[in-house]
């Protein structure tokens, strides 16, 4: 039996804008089921790295393969769920949480496909998984910052992705909401979702991780277990402009509620 191709496979990859590399020589292989944090100070290039994987900036050098397919030939982008860094979902036109999450289903429907009953059920279940099942028809501008992040996660889940890439899901979210967010991500871990989480400080998400990657000055300077990162972080991580929240607490996984999409617990 052949070994499953890595979800992401970067070899000497450099990403940037207008041929100017911001991230250089990235070597990285992420396999199914891994929960990877990409940490680093502001401006280190961590967001550029994941946006490069998503095809949102230019691959200046090296290669990127997604699910074993070179990125230039990879067209099934719905397999990669993306949760962008957005501080608010308020816009000049009002929309409900359900309407926003439904857009996550569109990549699975082609050019002219309409949302069918099954798609609407998937949208409803995605909202339930992030704990917003009772807010489907709420206008997103009236939701809290943490709830809006969860709407974005639900939007990504609605596309039934094989990997979820999140850019700073906890930035600008108060400590209480960070814990609710951590609960949601714990539930996704239980559902065997591969995750790459760009994050400034691990905080409430620390207990989720299987691997930590540190980016500084446009290069990957650490790649290892979260425990080793904690031991060695003073060697690899510059705290010159980082911040963290003193009131962040680890989350008790045993308390995480199970969602309706989850498999029933085996006694």
């Amino acid at each position: 039996m052949s070994q499953e191709a890595p979800v992401l496979d970067l070899r000497g990859a450099s990403f940037g804008y207008g041929d100017r590399p911001v991230v250089s020589g990235a070597d990285l292989r992420i396999r199914r089921g891994e929960i990877v944090a990409v940490v680093g100070p502001n401006g280190s290039g961590k967001s550029t790295l994941v946006k490069g994987v998503l095809g949102l900036n230019q691959l200046v050098a090296g290669s990127v393969r997604l699910f074993g397919i070179p990125s230039e030939d990879f067209h099934d982008r719905a397999r990669v769920g993306y949760v962008p860094q957005r501080h608010t979902l308020s816009s000049s036109v009002r929309a409900t949480a359900e309407e926003i999450v439904a857009t996550g289903r569109l990549p699975r429907l082609g050019w002219f496909g309409r949302l069918r009953a099954i798609d609407r059920q998937i949208v409803a279940r995605a909202l339930e998984v992030v704990g917003l099942g009772d807010r489907a028809t709420t206008e997103v501008g009236t939701l809290s910052g943490g709830q809006q992040r969860r709407v974005l996660i639900a939007r990504a889940l609605a596309g039934a992705p094989d990997v979820l890439i999140m850019d700073e899901p906890t930035a600008g979210v108060d400590a209480a909401s960070q814990h609710v967010l951590a609960d949601v991500l714990h539930r996704l871990v239980e559902r065997d979702v591969t995750m790459v989480i760009v994050i400034h400080e691990l905080g409430a998400l620390a207990s989720l991780l299987t691997r930590t990657i540190s980016v500084d000055g446009g290069r990957i300077v650490f790649d290892g277990t979260p425990e080793r990162f904690e031991r060695e972080r003073h060697l690899v991580h510059h705290d010159h402009d980082s911040h963290h929240h003193d009131d962040e607490m680890p989350t008790d996984i045993a308390r995480v509620p199970r969602g309706p999409l989850d498999e029933p617990e085996v006694p």
Binding site: S90, D134, G141, T142, L143, S144, A176
Partner: peptide, 14 residues
């Protein structure tokens, strides 16, 4: 019981 989703405060009332 689980933390209620509705407990978070809205960013702003519109």
């Amino acid at each position: 019981s689980p933390v209620p989703a509705s407990a978070e405060r809205p960013v702003a009332s519109t």
